Structures are given as C-alpha cells and as structure tokens.
Amino acid sequence: MPGNLQAAPADVTAALHDVAALGGFFVLRAGGGDTGWHPVGLSYARGFTDLAETVAHRHRAPEARIGVSIAHLGHVARLWSPALACVLLHGIVLDLSRLERADDGPALRMPHPAGLRVGAPPSPALALYGQVTAHLEALAQGLRVKVAPRLLDGNAASALVEAARALLAAHPELREPLTGLTTELLNTGRLVGTGEITGPDLTFRRRSCCLYYRAPNGSKCGDCCLAG
C-alpha cells in the first residue's frame, strides 16, 4: 500500500488489546513468552489435523470433511475478526505473516506485533484480503481430507460477514465504512460469487454450505444456501 507507514509495535499491541474486548474470535494475542506456541504454518502443513479431529469428535461428525470445514470456519473467523476491527477502529492493517497457534487449541498470537497505518486511498481491502487469504491458501494446500474449494471460499466469506456484523453491533457508527469495506472484500479474488449481502444490517446468504447440518446435533446456519 504505497504511502502508508509501519505502525509502531506498541500501537499494534494496543489495537489488538482494544479489539479483543469485542470477545470471541476478535482475540489475537500479542507478544508474550514462546512456550506453548508454534508457527501456524506447521499446522497448515499437517492439514490442521488435530483441530479437525477434535471438532469432528465433539460434534460426532460422520464424515471427516465436516470436522475440517468447521475447524476451517473457526480459524477464518479468528483471522478476519481482529484484522477487520483493527482497520476500522485503529487504521491498522495487521501483518499476519508470522502468526503462531497455541499448541493446545485454536488460539492465535502475533509474537512480534506489526502492521501498516492506513492512510489516504487506495482502499485497504486488497492488503487486508492478501493478509488473510495467504493463510487460507496455505491451509487449503495442506488439507489431507478432500473438501470442495468453493465450500472453503464460502467459509471465508461467511466468517468475514459475521465479523463485520459483530463489529457493526458494537459500533453502529461504522455502518457506512464497514459495509463498504465488507462489500469490496466480497468482490475481491476468491470471495467473488460466494454469496451476497441481503440487508442493511449485513445479513448474508452464502452459495455453499459449511456441512454443520450433517453432524448429528448440527443445524443449518442462518446464512446457509439450504436454509428456508
């Protein structure tokens, strides 16, 4: 992003601390000790097998791809949520290139907080898209269970819009820039054609299904193409 400057690590850490207060998927830890963490790329290379198997066991999924899809959806949410919030609330595009994952679960951290200050145009959408989808491409390449690529793209779109909806609920004053950025992202790269925003509160209908309904106690999600 020409014309933008590196954000000070202390500012990135403060931004991450602030957006974590939104809860759940917005938590991205900054710094701290190295014990208990590993480069997330190792998890991608291993096919995210540990998380997928844990999810499949929890939901008693009859097919391995269900666990993979649900684990993937949760991971995408942990990428989009803090990244989107930091852009809208603090004007920082996070540098997600050195993310680490907890050894015992799905939590993520930035061992060395970094990011770019968002200045004048161009829009941060391409930079934000690039940071997140670099992870999704690496994860998809490492999967050992066959999952339809467009299902994974749909997961990415669904997680993006859910992050935007949560951010909108907490900060309704951001409606215009948030809707604009979300719409721009949905019109970028692999997110094109994954679904459409259907209402002013960022309701969404995706064109694929995450397969959660196929688990014994699962159901169709609110944005599912199969929902009535």
Rank of each mutant, 00 (worst) to 15 (best):
L5N: 03
A10P: 01
T13F: 00
F25W: 09
F26D: 04
L28S: 06
R29H: 05
G31F: 01
G41M: 07
F48E: 07
T49G: 08
T54D: 14
A56W: 09
H59L: 07
S69H: 00
H72Q: 04
H75V: 10
L79Y: 05
S81G: 10
S81T: 05
S81W: 02
S81F: 03
L84M: 06
V87I: 15
V87L: 13
L89A: 10
L94N: 05
L99Y: 00
D103S: 15
G105K: 06
M110F: 06
M110C: 12
A114W: 03
L116K: 02
R117N: 10
P121H: 10
S123I: 06
A125I: 09
L128G: 03
L128D: 08
G130W: 05
T133G: 05
G142D: 07
R144S: 09
R144L: 11
K146Q: 08
K146M: 04
R150V: 04
L152D: 06
S158V: 03
E162S: 06
A163I: 10
R165P: 11
A170L: 15
P172M: 07
R175I: 11
E176F: 13
T179G: 10
L181E: 08
E184Q: 15
T188Q: 14
L191K: 02
T194E: 08
T194A: 08
G195D: 09
T198E: 11
G199M: 05
G199N: 14
G199K: 06
F204R: 03
C209L: 05
Y212H: 04
Y213I: 00
P216F: 00
P216L: 00
K220Q: 01
G228Q: 11
